[in-house]
Design a binder for these strands. Structure first.
Lengths: 109, 109
DNA sequence: TTGACATATTCCCATATGGGAATGTAACGT
DNA sequence: ACGTTACATTCCCATATGGGAATATGTCAA
């Protein structure tokens, strides 16, 4: 087997940096493809292709407005990623405590 | 250009489901490769290869104990993912508010 | 209908992948 | 030194990728 498709889930879809940029821009509000192209400076076909991937995993929603396609980020699809990464929270908090403990020990000495 | 390497960053590394399983298991404490193989049922070379990827992006740490290599999850490397996804939090909170508003409106009618 | 604008799709290709199988390497006990 | 245990690496291959370039589709205005 090869690597899983980028469209297989949100984890794979957001692995691509340009798609993350698009998601961040679209989080500020509904935007047309042309606006994304202008703002981020990618080629138009590239933007359309990335949007297709994001759409397939439901990371974005679309609606048509005349000749324009208006995309926006769908927070619900990002939430599982936030929750999954959140299950590791105690690990970095713990490491913070260790750093703190070392610092206190050091200042004692 | 092709797809970015799985070792290019934590986002790409965690896109692979088996690597996520390994990370979760290793979050419960230090484990040897053999323990991972037993617990998750993957082939040993497969586990070693996934661990190599995780190690390159620092999602895990290792130390040697005789013949055993003891791996553990490094929370610090997961934190940026949690924070990035967290920047979209208002989106799903907003959607929750919308659901709530609709529910209240409905119960009023 | 025709032309212009907005977006989507297709074709081509270099590149990285993950699994399977086999083999390599390192540390231990005797 | 030798055999065994524990991991790591290599080779092979089907498959998906993202960019570039070209082209197709769809919508509006006149």
């Amino acid at each position: 087997m090869a690597r899983a498709a980028t469209t297989s889930d949100a984890f794979n879809a957001v692995a691509e940096p340009r798609r993350r940029e698009i998601l961040q821009f679209l989080a500020t509000g509904e935007r047309s493809v042309g606006e994304i192209v202008m703002r981020l400076g990618f080629e138009q076909p590239s933007v359309s292709k990335h949007l297709r991937v994001l759409l397939e995993v439901k990371l974005v929603d679309v609606r048509r407005d005349g000749r324009h396609m208006l995309y926006r980020t769908n927070g619900d699809a990002i939430r599982p990623l936030h929750e999954w990464t959140g299950t590791f929270e105690r690990l970095w908090k713990h490491q913070l405590l260790q750093v703190k403990a070392r610092a206190e020990k050091k200042s004692q000495a």
